[in-house]
């Protein structure tokens, strides 16, 4: 079983890696270039090319009060032929006034893959979450479109203990015809993105997200409001790289805002 855990801390108003623990194949590396940035950027490196049979990963992230974390992955997450399945469980706690941003690389389930992942995210008062996920139909260029056995990703987001958003991305090609109306139709990739940010109105954020996506061709997308301060995006497309770079573009901008906002707050405190 591979696992990693990250706990942030605050040192002179900047977010630092307070506590981290990892076992093979993982390594946790801080990659923040501008050390004056309050937002800490961390990359999860993995010596494994992906999930193999019976792999079971556990991830725990604790974003402490007043800290800002952007967690990145290194490459596409492949799930190989896994006749007995592979699993991943991620638990995230975002404390008060903390910021967590995570848009991992697309998941690519190969022929025969059985994968199950659970994401449990807990937000406190005034916590911000920027969250994305992308799923590929498989190794399309090798003729492996929807050739995996089962892919399931259940995401539950709680705000102050109450379930706020739930998404069950569950694909079993033997049970559901993905080409059919209402499912993937003519597309082969799916991306989901959620923004929960009490410091920005959902309407403004939706307008920004729509502008970014409107520049892309050969996709189908929709943005909708979840509450006054939260919105969700769903996209269908035919290129993982395209969807990943679009979500990254949105994330980068939102991270930049959060960074600037926190910098201003710190300056005000110091005056």
């Amino acid at each position: 079983m591979g696992q990693y855990s990250i706990e942030t801390g605050l040192y002179q108003e900047r977010t630092i890696l307070k506590d981290t623990y990892f076992t093979p194949p993982f390594n946790v590396v801080e990659i923040r270039e501008d050390k004056t940035n309050p937002l800490m950027e961390v990359m999860i490196m993995s010596s494994s090319p992906g999930f193999f049979n019976l792999d079971d990963y556990k991830i725990e992230i604790n974003v402490k009060t007043d800290t800002l974390l952007n967690l990145q992955t290194q490459s596409y997450q492949r799930v190989y032929d896994t006749p007995d399945g592979a699993r991943q469980e991620m638990k995230v706690i975002i404390e008060e006034d903390a910021y967590f941003s995570h848009v991992p690389h697309p998941s690519v389930p190969h022929k025969g893959a059985i994968f199950e992942s659970k994401n449990n995210i807990n937000l406190a008062k005034n916590s911000v979450l920027i969250w994305g996920e992308i799923l590929a139909c498989g190794r399309k260029l090798n003729g492996e479109s929807f050739a995996f056995t089962k892919y399931s990703s259940l995401t539950e987001i709680y705000r102050e203990g109450k379930l706020f958003y739930k998404d069950n991305l569950y694909l079993k090609p033997s049970a559901v015809d993905f080409k059919t109306l209402g499912q993937y139709e003519t597309f082969t990739y799916q991306a989901n993105f959620v923004s929960i940010d009490p410091f920005h109105s959902a309407k403004d954020r939706m307008a920004f997200i729509s502008t970014v996506l409107a520049e892309e061709e050969d996709i189908l997308f929709g943005v909708s409001q979840l509450s006054e301060d939260a919105c969700a995006l769903r996209v269908l497309g035919n290129s993982g790289e395209q969807l990943f770079s679009a979500l990254k573009k949105i994330q980068k901008q939102l991270d930049k805002h959060a960074n600037a906002l926190r910098k201003k707050e710190i300056e005000l405190k110091l005056v």
Binding site: L169, G182, Q190, G222
Partner: peptide, 19 residues
């Protein structure tokens, strides 16, 4: 139970686009 609340991506998108 695993399929509880199954997401239908293209249906959801058409509902969002309706806005």
């Amino acid at each position: 139970e695993e399929m509880r609340g199954l997401c239908n991506p293209a249906f959801d998108i058409r509902c969002m686009q309706h806005e």
